[in-house]
Amino acid sequence: MPRLSYRRALTRALADEMTRDESVVVLGEDIRVAAANVTTGLVKKFGPERVRDTPLSEQAFTSFATGAALAGARPVVEFQIPSLLFLVFEQIVNHAHKFPLMTGGQCAVPVTYLVPGSGSRTGWAGQHSDHPYALFAHVGVTTVVPATPADAYGLLVSAIRCDDPVVVFAPAGALDLREDVADPAPVPLGRGVVRRAGDDVTVVAVGHLVHEALAVAEELAGQASVEVFDPRTLYPFDWDGLVDSVSRTGRLVVVDDGNRSCGIAGEIIATVVERVRLAAPPRRVTRPDGAVLPFAPALDRAVQPGRDQLTAAIQLTLKDG
């Protein structure tokens, strides 16, 4: 079975959709030389008109993509750095996201914002290490965080085909993954998946943390049966899929690489406790409130959710109630 790397899954999704649909164009900084190692080979195959290297004008090219979408294109905008999303938050939220409602349904804005390398890349410090997916879930922009190469392919394809704006966070912590994928296929937006079945507790893990959760579940296998739920899409969230899992296990732990206050973990816990009577208080493992990742590697790691924290949270939840 062919091995597919996470990065090449993204490349293949872009190439396949550009081949399938002339309206797909890609915009971004240094994409002609694939500086983020995702747009590799696209200029040669599709030309500089459809693979448009941009000046450092994030606000303008993000809104340029909105306009192109209003005129019929399906642009994919690549951002090399997750924190650039703060710079273009206005363009995405106030324009791309609001146009369909504000115009009374006169238009669609099918733009995909792709961030290859979100979260910590270790050593890239305060302004290059954010993981702001919860911001987009908060404002109601479709937000996906693929954990595996197959999902990276499938969710990016679905994002490009979606008639609404979609932000695709490809976590730096997952970019080096490879897996056997016979036939990459679209993955529906808004559908989670149980990565490991278990009976005692449901662990919801976002993005690269899915693999941490699976490792912890394996370590705890002698003590507890841990179910790992990968939401894949954070907005719209697969609430029914998660409620189904937690209804069986009765316990919930969330591990989330976002900041704690108003993070996605808080929303997940709130929604589950609205719908399920839990056997024990739920717990969450997140970045601290207001986290800014410090430079030194030990400090960088210290503010990211860790395996030990997750293990402790699971054990506490199992002990309570």
Binding site: S63, F64, G67
Partner: peptide, 18 residues
Amino acid sequence: IVGAAGAILTGAVWERRR
């Protein structure tokens, strides 16, 4: 939003020209 529409229109005209 003051100043916001110029880039939107530029993208729209670019796409129609394409």
